[in-house]
């Protein structure tokens, strides 16, 4: 049954099997591959998108249970915090392979939007759901601080 979802401000009509997670709708049905698959069980954060401004794991949310919620992905995320985070990420060359970084950025932007001056503890709390096997954690922490300072 077709479902309409608002993604990055645009209504998309999706015809996927009931219960298909948002992640696979984005990646396979809409060819929006910026949102990554890392575990499928809400443990790595690679698939993080915003649902009504909150960071969520798209691998664990059925696309047909969004209930009119607005989805924002790495491709569509803009605004002051997003710009500050991207600038800091570029400036410090945070990513190594980059695969986890869409999710890291979506988590970091959500953090700064809710809390423009996060403490170290706030950063740990907001970012510990996002795994990075390249272990860019030091750079991520520095970049969030740099972005916060620029806001």
């Amino acid at each position: 049954m077709a479902v309409t979802i608002n993604i990055n401000g645009k209504d998309e009509t999706i015809d996927a099997a009931p219960g298909t997670p948002l992640l696979w709708v984005l990646r396979d049905h809409l060819q929006m591959t910026g949102t990554k698959f890392g575990c499928g069980v809400a443990q790595c954060g690679a698939c993080t998108v915003h649902l009504d401004g909150e960071p969520v794991r798209s691998c664990s949310i059925p696309h047909d249970a969004l209930d009119g919620g607005k989805v924002t992905t790495i491709e569509g995320k803009e605004g002051k915090a997003a710009k500050a985070i991207r600038d800091a990420w570029v400036n410090l060359n945070v990513p190594q392979c980059g695969y986890c970084q869409s999710g890291q950025i979506m988590s970091a932007v959500a953090l700064l939007e809710a809390n423009p001056k996060p403490s170290d503890q706030d950063i740990d709390d907001a970012m510990s759901g996002n795994l990075c096997r390249c272990a860019t954690y030091m750079s991520i922490r520095r970049a969030i601080k740099q972005a916060a300072a620029s806001l």
Binding site: I74, E75, W89, V94, Q101
Partner: peptide
């Protein structure tokens, strides 16, 4: 690669 990565 970083400019591309930050935009997915």
């Amino acid at each position: 690669t970083v400019e591309k990565i930050v935009r997915g």
